[in-house]
Simulated assay, not measured.
Amino acid sequence: AEFKDKGSRFIAFAYPIRTLADVKKYLDPLKEEHHKARHWCYAYRLGVDGTQFRANDDGEPSGSAGRPILGQIDSVGVTDVLVVVVRYFGGTLLGVPGLIHAYKEATAQALAVAEVVEKNIEKTVWLKCEYPFLNEAI
């Protein structure tokens, strides 16, 4: 998804990830492809419980990029996802409120068009017990 504000372009990419290594796998090629961009801000949330996460501002003012991206991930309620927003500076400073809005909007647009895959958590458990205890085991 792409969002423009006062000449700056914010291009958002959403990727499914399973591990921290996947973050680098997607981030490095984006930096090469968009080598003229000024910032590659991102956020991710991993795991069933969502306790593994990170928000990176990549040189933008603290809390103006990574946190809004992570906030959008959380508002959609997804996990195992990485969102990277590439910013091309347009010559006009947006200020912190403007940056927050831009990163938030670009992320919201990317997640709105992304295909969300819902997966059931399943695990086969084998329980061995003697016949008299079968009712208690079930």
Rank of each mutant, 00 (worst) to 15 (best):
G98W: 01
V76C: 05
T107N: 04
T92E: 11
A106N: 11
V78T: 14
I69L: 02
I73Q: 06
V83C: 09
G77T: 12
G91E: 10
L70H: 13
I69C: 03
V84K: 11
I69S: 04
I73V: 01
R87C: 01
S75F: 12
A108W: 13
T92H: 11
V84D: 10
H101K: 14
Q109S: 04
L94M: 15
A108R: 14
A110C: 11
A112T: 06
L99W: 01
P68V: 00
A112S: 10
F89M: 09
R67A: 03
G95F: 13
A110N: 14
V86F: 07
L70N: 06
V96A: 01
G77R: 13
S75C: 13
Y103N: 01
Y103A: 00
G71N: 07
H101V: 14
G77V: 05
I100R: 11
L93D: 10
E105Q: 06
A106K: 15
I100T: 07
T79Q: 08
L70S: 05
G98N: 11
L94T: 06
Q109G: 05
L70A: 04
R87E: 03
V84N: 09
Y88F: 13
E105C: 03
V96I: 09
P68H: 00
V84Y: 13
E105R: 14
V83L: 13
E105S: 12
L93H: 13
I100K: 09
R87H: 03
Y103M: 00
G98D: 07
Y88S: 05
D74Y: 08
H101E: 15
T79A: 03
P68D: 00
K104C: 08
G77A: 08
L94W: 15
E105D: 11
E105P: 04
Q72E: 15
L93I: 06
I100A: 02
Q109D: 11
K104N: 11
V83S: 09
V85H: 10
V85M: 08
V86C: 05
Q109C: 07
